[in-house]
Computed example of a mutant assay.
Amino acid sequence: MTVAPAPSLVARGRVLDASRPLVMGIANRTPDSFFDHGSYFAFDRFLAHVEGLVEAGADIVDIGGVKAGAGPEVSLSEELDRVVPAVEAVARRFDVTISVDTWHSEVLRASLEAGAHIGNDISGFGDPAYLEVAAAGDAAVVATHIRLAPRVDDPDPHYDDLVETVVGFLAERAERALAAGLGPSQVILDAGFDLGKTTSQSLALLAATDRLVELGYPVLVATSNKGFVGETLGLEVGERREASIAAAAIAYLRGARLFRMHDVRGARRALDTLAAISASA
């Protein structure tokens, strides 16, 4: 079943046509990333990586300074040092929408001042000032479902009704964003695969993507090299490219239009092919 997506995404005056697939390239400035293991932590390598993402067709570049999973503590000042100069450099060099993967309002504020457009918050707006900062900067935000908190292990999550819980959580977070002054085209929803979900739970949420789309906001899916993809097929992190794209394709057919991916070129080609087929049907 294909569901009509929200028509546009607006972030600080930039309008992205969400009737077509939008690919968000991942640009981590973390020394302990689960996927690249810090390969792009050095500033010159980071910028070269972003250049490659843009050339491969990224509509959005998502810059993060702290990984979502457990690891050594990263102070607020260290996160700012990792992220803000990176945002400033990308904004100066490339004509691309910039998302900042942070759950701290202080990092969001500084990043918006440096040229970012979107706050990608996996905490579900755990920082009470986050939405106020986003609204003041006319930024878009990603509301993500998580059961506990970022960087906290959640090995045995239980839900009485998984899909209804996640849909209800994100509907409430979207309402919070609207109440803070953001418009519907500035609110993006993300089911949060692997964040307090088992593999079977993440698969069930992927299959129910259309339920999130029905809420009327742009929907982002982050399937790229995730644990649920690897566990489903018994694949190590470096072996999950094709499966990640296949999972993104399923979400596209269920109405999602934003895709956070490591392999931007592969995702761009696969999703654009699906879009062309759908348009000709």
Rank of each mutant, 00 (worst) to 15 (best):
G25R: 07
G196E: 11
R173S: 05
L220Q: 13
R92C: 03
L235D: 09
L22M: 09
G230P: 00
A110L: 06
Y130R: 00
A222K: 12
S280Q: 04
T199R: 15
A89T: 09
P72E: 10
R93M: 10
G181W: 05
F94D: 10
S200I: 09
P218E: 06
L206S: 15
P150N: 13
I26K: 11
A207V: 13
W103G: 12
E132R: 14
D95G: 02
E79T: 03
Y252Q: 09
L271V: 10
D194C: 00
L170A: 05
S185T: 14
S39G: 07
D156H: 12
D127T: 01
E55Y: 00
D62L: 00
P128T: 00
V74R: 15
L16A: 06
L9N: 12
A136T: 04
R82P: 00
L271D: 08
D121R: 02
V163N: 12
T198V: 01
L148D: 14
D32A: 07
V61I: 03
V87D: 13
A246K: 14
V66Y: 01
D194R: 02
N225V: 08
A267V: 03
E113R: 14
V141H: 08
V152F: 07
V3S: 10
L271A: 10
D62M: 01
L80T: 10
A91Y: 03
L274Q: 12
R93T: 08
Q201P: 02
E79Y: 03
A243E: 15
G216H: 09
V10A: 05
V142K: 13
P72M: 08
L253S: 10
E236I: 01
R82E: 09
R241T: 14
E236T: 11
G119H: 11
L22R: 08
E79K: 08
G57C: 05
G192H: 06
T273R: 05
T223I: 02
F259M: 11
D272H: 09
A136V: 01
V213S: 09
M24W: 03
Y40K: 09
V152S: 12
I146M: 11
R12M: 10
H37I: 01
L22H: 06
A42C: 08
V219T: 09
S77Q: 15
S75D: 13
